[in-house]
Nucleic acid binder design. Structure first.
Lengths: 225, 225
DNA sequence: GCAAAAGTGTTACAGTTACACCCATGG
DNA sequence: CCATGGGTGTAACTGTAACACTTTTGC
């Protein structure tokens, strides 16, 4: 074999290569993952082959966009799965990404193309090693939550302190003390109050906004509870 | 195109796929990386194509073995680089791994095939995006050092407390208090004393051994200074 | 006996946790 | 006026950081 030339608009794909995307979102007060129906009652992570002309991350972003309509979500490479045993009769390299989309992204957007949201603790039977991939993505998400500001990527533009706290509790699966949580998250300086209040049952709550300029991941570990 | 069948001993390779290995070791009291000479005064990370029949990690382990003679070193997948722009005229997906080999592995073993050790803070001109890959591997190594027992993979089977401390200082690039370091590392219970002493200049030092059974990465973060 | 590295505790400080009541609104 | 969720401070405790001298060996 020899080197393959290609031009910048080459639409052919590498046969043995795909990207997969583990798309997380908060839906109905639960952390959910978007899955596509497959033949044989199995579900699978959304994924696509990679064009010669596009980067891996672009391919993942396109797959994310076509399912959720969200183009600028948080997207991070997770791991590359490429063992010969993971699929019989064919070699397949899957570069897995994980994505976080805000809770206020249109619910039904994800349900085009036979896709559905499943709570991470209540998954259907999954194709290949996709269960393992989701488990790893979840571990990484929980882990990152503790030393970075990644949790805000799951929230709408503005949110109340209680909403952030519920988000953290939902992902980490444990209760957090309200006063300690507020003190810390405010001390970290990564959110700022807006003039607006959210009114609902009970006393109205101050709405806050995330400050992406704040250097969160740097230096300070375990920023949050 | 269509699906490619293959059998378990298929030696053909995927043309656009390679593994790269960032091999770290402590040499002459510095943290060094193994690089191979390339045409045009450039140096590159050791790497190889992936056979259809072998896993990515196997391929990385083989590349590591053939350069260092170490078959059971610490090996971890780092990141997959696959943007079209990283090499002109050809699409190349590089799955990068990083490896740690003990300081007492034979020095010259790495120097077969025109390879040489370079201190991480004094690297030669590098091919493609390999400088970026090394920088990322180093960041990850430093990071992991703080919440896992990965540092022991760079040490011989037995070592003195001062040797571990110097290892940490070398990688993190900062001084650590001797008494605090010892107290913590002993409290963590991940090393145990051996009957042996190491004699040299000054008072002989107790030799310790790493206890791989100790659950290090679990639960406790920031185990070390 | 002196140079060189090993070994050893205590105190001050900072950060974390635990904890309970009043406030503002809608119905 | 009451049910609902929002908002607030302090004290005990735990972990971390700073710090200097004695011990054992080889030369």
């Amino acid at each position: 074999m020899e080197t393959v030339g290609f031009d910048a608009k080459d639409d052919t794909v590498l046969e043995q290569l795909e990207v997969l995307v583990v798309i997380f979102s908060l839906r109905e007060s639960r952390l959910k993952v978007l899955l596509k129906a497959q033949a044989g009652d199995l579900w699978a992570l959304p994924g696509r082959p990679v064009r010669l002309s596009s980067s891996l991350e672009q391919a993942a972003a396109e797959e994310l966009d076509c399912h959720t309509g969200v183009a600028d979500a948080y997207l991070e490479q997770l791991y590359t799965y490429g063992d010969p045993e993971r699929i019989s009769g064919r070699r397949l390299i899957s570069v897995a990404y994980f994505a976080l989309i805000p809770a206020d992204a249109p619910y039904t957007a994800g349900e085009a193309y036979g896709a559905r949201w499943f709570a991470v603790d209540d998954l259907p039977p999954l194709a290949m090693d996709h269960a393992e991939i989701i488990a790893y993505a979840l571990r990484r998400l929980r882990y990152k939550l503790e030393y970075s500001a990644v949790g805000f990527q799951l929230l709408p533009e503005t949110f109340t302190l209680s909403e952030i706290q519920r988000t953290y509790e939902m992902i980490l699966g444990e209760k957090i003390d309200k006063r300690n949580f507020r003190r810390r998250i405010l001390a970290a300086g990564i959110i700022e109050p807006t003039p607006a209040l959210r009114t609902g049952e009970g006393r109205p709550a101050r709405l806050y906004r995330y400050r992406p300029d704040a250097v969160a991941e740097v230096k300070a570990r375990r920023l949050f509870p």
